[in-house]
Simulated assay, not measured.
Amino acid sequence: MAESLIDIEVVFATPERQLLLQVSVPSGTTLREAVRLSGIAEQFPEWDVGVCALGVFGRVIADAQTRPVEVGDRIEIYRPLLADPKEVRRLRAAKAAQARGGKS
């Protein structure tokens, strides 16, 4: 009996370029394996997408190496943050307070 395939999408974006691939993977494939099978890593050799966090439709999936794909999933590959958003806000507030002549 032939192995059933599931249609999914794999998405990755950098500030310069975005790519969405439509892929068919065998039923039971995990999210992490689906990303590997998609070949998207070869499109972005400067990024190690194999270790990036993964999500499905904007929701981070903690167990991407064990969670199987579902029909229609859009697997999103998340780049690491360059700066902690809380720290950036704290620094911005301190700078604004200093500009007003207040204490930081």
Rank of each mutant, 00 (worst) to 15 (best):
D73M: 05
P85A: 14
I6A: 01
I40Y: 11
A34T: 07
E9P: 01
P80Q: 09
V49S: 02
R74F: 02
A34S: 10
I8Q: 07
I40T: 01
S27I: 05
A53S: 12
L31N: 01
L31Q: 03
V11R: 02
F44Y: 12
L5W: 00
R32K: 13
S4G: 00
A99R: 13
I61K: 10
M1Y: 07
R92K: 12
V88W: 08
I6H: 03
A83I: 14
G101C: 12
R32Q: 12
D63K: 11
V69W: 08
S38H: 11
T30N: 01
L37R: 14
R89N: 04
R17V: 09
A94T: 04
M1Q: 11
A13G: 15
R74G: 04
R92V: 02
R100C: 06
V88Y: 09
E70W: 01
D84M: 01
P26K: 08
R89I: 02
G39L: 04
L19Q: 15
A41E: 15
R100H: 10
E16M: 09
R17W: 08
R79S: 14
Q98F: 11
I40L: 08
S4W: 02
E16S: 13
I77T: 05
R36K: 15
A41P: 00
D63C: 01
S38Q: 08
E3A: 14
C52G: 03
A53G: 07
S4Q: 13
L19I: 11
E33A: 14
A99Q: 13
I61M: 11
Q43D: 10
L81M: 14
R74I: 14
S27E: 12
A62W: 10
E46R: 10
Y78M: 05
E70L: 11
V60F: 12
E9A: 12
D84C: 08
R59W: 00
V88G: 04
I75K: 05
Q18V: 13
K95P: 00
I77P: 02
A53Q: 10
R74S: 06
V69R: 10
F57K: 02
P68A: 12
A83E: 15
A64Y: 07
R100G: 03
D73F: 02
L31D: 00
A41M: 10
Q98D: 09
Y78C: 01
Q65M: 07
D73C: 05
G39M: 06
R32M: 08
T14N: 08
P85R: 14
G55Q: 08
F57C: 03
Q18A: 08
Q43R: 14
T30R: 06
E3L: 12
G39A: 06
I75D: 04
K86H: 07
R79C: 02
A93D: 12
V49C: 13
V23W: 05
P80M: 09
V60E: 03
L82Q: 14
L54M: 11
G28P: 00
L82V: 14
L5D: 00
G101K: 06
R90Q: 13
A41T: 03
E9R: 13
I77A: 05
V25E: 05
F12N: 06
R67A: 13
L21Y: 11
P15S: 09
P26E: 07
R36C: 00
E42T: 03
R67H: 03
D84A: 01
D73W: 04
R89Q: 10
Q18E: 12
L20Y: 02
G58W: 06
L91S: 09
M1P: 07
G55F: 09
G58T: 08
A62L: 09
Y78G: 02
A34I: 07
T14F: 03
G39P: 03
